[in-house]
């Protein structure tokens, strides 16, 4: 009995993989297309989130009184179950991509907004004072001091937002938005794990890779790495000019 159970389990497992590969090889064009659609929806939503949240986040550091309301609004958007948010938006913008993009954007406001706000608030006062002291305008202080110092925190917020958006974008299919979610939904209705997996795997990979990519970007932009690059550049330059001198001497 017992051994039979294990056997049937491993048989099922094997069957799943066979089905999965058959499905993928028969439908890879469709999967690729849906992946592209997924990237498209998530990408636009993420872009909108960033475009809205970074300026707003900066604005509320200058107008503290508004901060609790703005962040409160973003918090509410994030708390509403995403499926409900999508549903409610149908009555406003109808079904399709547009609806999905707006819903995803609203859903992901909080991490970027919150991190922009706290990132800038946490810039040491000595640094902004120094900026003012050497004669920077308020805009220059923002550009040359506050944003670079807040950048790691802001990018961390974008990372969270991007993972949320890519994950939640699978729900977009429920309101006709397309993307990898449509595979998951059809897998669910046919009770076919292999089809669900064919949608979930690329979606997960997508989320993990953008998270990883942003993390690497952040590391590459860190002041330490930048200083090391500057140093290397100067060293190479010195070496080049030395070589040149030697060549001139030889000649």
């Amino acid at each position: 009995m017992y051994s039979l159970g294990i056997q049937s389990l491993s048989e099922k497992f094997l069957e799943f993989w066979v089905n999965f590969f058959t499905y993928v090889s028969a439908n890879y064009m469709k999967i690729l297309y849906l992946t592209w659609e997924h990237i498209y929806i998530s990408g636009i939503a993420l872009l909108l989130t960033v475009i809205i949240c970074i300026p707003t986040g900066i604005y509320i550091t200058r107008n503290e009184k508004l901060a609790p309301y703005v962040i409160g609004f973003a918090n509410i958007c994030q708390t509403i179950p995403s499926l409900a948010l999508l549903g409610m938006l149908i009555s406003v913008v109808g079904i399709g991509d547009k609806n999905a993009i707006i819903a995803l954007t609203l859903y992901a406001l909080l991490p970027v907004l919150q991190n922009t706000y706290t990132g800038i608030k946490n810039v040491p006062k000595s640094a902004t004072e120094a900026g003012r002291g050497v004669g920077m305008t308020e805009f220059q202080i923002l550009k040359m001091v506050e944003l670079p110092l807040a950048r790691p925190v802001i990018i961390a917020g974008i990372r969270v937002a991007s993972v949320w958006i890519i994950g939640t974008a699978t729900l977009a299919a429920a309101i006709g938005g397309g993307g990898l979610g449509s595979l998951i939904f059809s897998g669910l209705s046919f009770i076919r794990n292999d089809i669900i997996f064919a949608g979930a795997l690329p979606a997960t990979t997508l989320a993990l890779s953008i998270d990883y990519g942003l993390k690497k970007l952040q590391e590459a932009m860190s002041p330490k790495r930048r200083a090391a690059r500057l140093n290397k550049l100067a060293e190479n330059k010195a070496k080049d000019s030395n070589n040149q001198k030697e060549m001139e001497m030889d000649a």
Binding site: P124, S126, A127, E129, A130, R132, G133, P148, L149
Partner: peptide
């Protein structure tokens, strides 16, 4: 401020 040099009490270098 640009025309006046200023050495700040807590040094105040830009850390980045």
């Amino acid at each position: 401020r640009r025309s006046i040099g200023y050495v700040i009490q807590q040094i105040g270098l830009f850390p980045h």
